[in-house]
Amino acid sequence: MDSFLKIRGLKKHFAQNYVLDGVDLDVSAGSVTTIIGKSGIGKSVLLKCIANLLDADAGTIELNNELISRTVNVTQGSGADFSYMFQNNALFDSLTAFDNIALPLREASNLSEAEVRERTNNMLSNLELSDSAKNFPGELSGGMKKRVALGRALITEPRIVLFDEPTTGLDPERKFSVFEMIADYRKRFDFTALLVSHDIPEVFEISDQVAWLDGGKIKFFGSPRELNLDTNSALSEFLNKANYGRSNSLINGTVK
């Protein structure tokens, strides 16, 4: 497999506890890869290490065979490497939806204000948020906030978007629409998606690859179909606890 994002031997510890203890992961370009695992096992830590929000103790992260040291590098004419969509959206309460989405362009690109406005308006239109452009996050519904956060993550045209539990706190219907939205925009904006999610099996509908993080290592990596055939008893136990039946028809990937 041709790896777009290649992680080797990534380690991170807090106090005496190694949360990541030699993580190896290969993510191919244009794919949706979902990291699953128990709560507190280190999934978000892994994403934050990739995004350079946390310093790893050891290991390497390569993007397109280049060792990365900074999160994003937004310059005129080229997109950012990474974008991050936070679990709780992390929107600025004092900025409107428009200003939240425009923020990375205004503060970290060389685009003129006219270009920023044009790109932001296009993004708002794509996300069906044009009517809410002047609303503050506090005036938006949960789903709309997610879309604003997604818009902010995509406005710099990143090559990889990291989603940290994007459906937390949403009802089943909204969860489904957020996953549809990610799958839809991934096709439209052509980015590589790396997700952390507890929504099993729903998240498998949009996933090309699933990585199971356990004991600080990736202990399973494969397609949802291969997950179905895996005989690892610990993985079976985890999936059973996550209400995932191995014969579940959702893994056929028809939604994608």
Binding site: K48, V72, F82, Q87, N88, A90, L91
Partner: peptide, 18 residues
């Protein structure tokens, strides 16, 4: 706490300066 400072970092915006 709301990760807005982390969000600025992921956008390549210096949170201290901003």
């Amino acid at each position: 706490n709301d990760e807005q400072i982390d969000a600025l970092q992921t956008m390549s915006v210096d949170p201290l300066g901003f």
